[in-house]
Design a binder for these strands. Structure first.
Lengths: 334, 334
DNA sequence: CCCTTGAATGTATACGTATTCAGAGCACGA
DNA sequence: TCGTGCTCTGAATACGTATACATTCAAGGG
């Protein structure tokens, strides 16, 4: 590997000048600049990232912690966040929050392997995360949030989105509603569950415990939860699921039970992952503005890294209902 | 941030001894070891990764280049590769081969930001990739391969797997076969297309051009390709798709045309992504042993990094047909 | 008692970059 | 002529670690 010093020798200048050329520093003569550029091109010089990181205390790399990648919501999130980071000239190290991933990510910050972290799966239970934030680690929570943590956070109004789904059921006269709930430790699922319950209460819909079942946020979880609800009494006429992925599972369980969608049962999911629009599903769902959320998260993180002391911000986006076949494609007044 | 030198001062030893403790070096007295360990724990010392990388010329990070993350095959691949890397104590930087990702990854190797690269989307057309390999960059191709490139490669026998699908159709008496083909620049799609054609020829099945349509490897691509085939003549009785994702699109197109699966048309995909097993699909498909492929790829890369001069290896795995509903769940003699 | 051996530890250095500081060279006005 | 200001450049240094080399010290053999 050729170093800046070697480039300097070949160009007949000092290493300092090479560095200045590299950074488009003003006070370099046109002549020197040309010579250095030429040698760089000829030798294929690339600055050593480790040395640079050591000197500047910046790595140009950001960590991203996601949950189960087989839930298509996360690849989607990774895609938009990756694009946003790439546009800012940043690299992305990916960790799975399952297993030792979260810990590894938090260690990476102390080891100065990343400039900051984007957490999509934060929970209030994570002590290491809280500690890292207390120590001033540049962390932004996206998607799942923890209001008590003193760090920048980006999410969407899951409570309102779920409440809108309940209102929609009520307006369409689908009164025997059910809820395929998610895990409590995920703020998204918790808010959606609470929002749907509140929406039911506010619109005169009864939601007995027998028509609520908690699943994971997975296909199998949704399927099992739906099956439990069906086994527990008469079939509901409308089901709200904590995310699209579990809604697909619920659809399978409904089909297993011989129920037709949307004739017998309406189904609404959450996230509007691309698959929801497929003909096989045509899933009505609530869309989060992922691209906006990603852009906001990345710029919050960059600002935090640049200015660690700045005030913490919490940005929340609006969600919109996307109506498709599983609710009969029926637009109801809002 | 506390440094090794500060730990040394607090523990009353030299920085060299701290470093030795960190690496479990033999000749450190039990006494010194205890003192250093204690100070490390109290101060929360973490070695600086950049300094370490500069000194050792190893980053402990590997680059992974994938294609369109919305195709669930890639998240699956990322998951298994990430697990394998994590188990080896390595981090993973993710790049999307679309846009500037590939170039950024190759630059990262020269900048010593990664120890090596795992390419899942290599094409023969990539000049920068070929150059990097010529320069001796530690690169392993997984999934998509390019036989001409002098680097380690891991794939599965796509030709044989696709041929087996043709043989299966023939054995079941489904003779009017069709092919939803993939792009030519992806070795996987190319081999599967060629394998299916060869399998048809070898089993007396006719595959006219009118029943072949090239799509991307996406849902929309598969849907459009299937629609073109249906528009071009009488419906086939069996369709082989270049991957599961495009098979889902083909299923949608078949449903749009009022054709039933499997009664009217059988469908086979490729990859056995988790969704293929869902009730809504029940897709018969060809399974690649992804976990084995990932483990092999990671160990090949590690060996290459440790010993750059070693002989290049090309590992190929067997694929197996997984029979489900879209071919009537029917096991046919092999 | 001296010499050798080996364990334990410290000193010094190099990795490649970014940046500070000082200095060289030059033009220009007083 | 001298001082002043300006542009451009190079020498020197620090970042934090891993390791080669030197040194100390105690134990043991002759």
């Amino acid at each position: 590997m050729v170093t800046a010093r070697e480039v300097a020798k070949l160009a007949g200048v000092s290493q300092a000048t090479v560095s200045r050329v590299l950074h488009d520093h003003a006070s370099v003569s046109e002549d020197a600049r040309r010579k250095v550029r030429r040698v760089m091109a000829e030798t294929g010089y690339q600055p050593n990232g480790a040395a640079r990181a050591m000197r500047t205390n910046r790595t140009g790399t950001v960590g991203l912690i996601v949950d189960d990648m087989t839930n298509p919501f996360y690849p989607e999130l990774v895609r938009v966040l990756g694009a946003e980071l790439g546009a800012a000239g940043l690299r992305m190290i990916l960790w799975d929050s399952a297993g030792p991933g979260e810990r590894a990510a938090l260690d990476a910050i102390d080891q100065r392997l990343v400039d900051g972290l984007l957490f999509t799966t934060a929970t209030a239970a994570s002590v290491p995360l809280a500690r890292a934030i207390d120590r001033g680690a540049p962390v932004v929570l996206v998607n799942r949030t923890v209001p008590d943590l003193a760090c920048d956070q980006v999410d969407s109004d899951n409570h309102a989105g779920a409440a809108a789904a309940a209102r929609y059921f009520a307006a369409a006269g689908r009164r025997e509603v059910a809820l395929v709930d998610g895990p409590r430790d995920a703020s998204t699922a918790r808010d959606r569950g609470a929002g749907f319950r509140a929406g039911c209460a506010g619109n005169g819909l009864e939601l007995p415990e027998s028509r609520i079942a908690g699943g994971g946020l997975s296909h199998d979880g949704g399927r099992a939860a739906m099956a439990r609800i069906l086994a527990g009494g008469p079939a509901p006429s409308a089901v709200f699921c904590a995310n699209d992925f579990s809604a697909f599972g619920a659809l399978d369980a409904l089909a297993d039970a011989g129920l037709r969608v949307p004739e017998d049962v309406w189904v609404i999911g959450y996230d509007d992952i691309p698959m929801a629009a497929w003909g096989a599903f045509g899933l009505t769902t609530v869309r989060q503005p992922l691209a906006d959320m990603a852009a906001t998260a990345v710029s919050l993180l960059r600002e935090r890294v640049a200015e660690p002391g700045r005030a913490v911000r919490h940005q929340r986006f609006r969600n919109d209902l996307v109506v498709r076949r599983t609710t009969n494609g029926q637009e109801v007044l809002r």
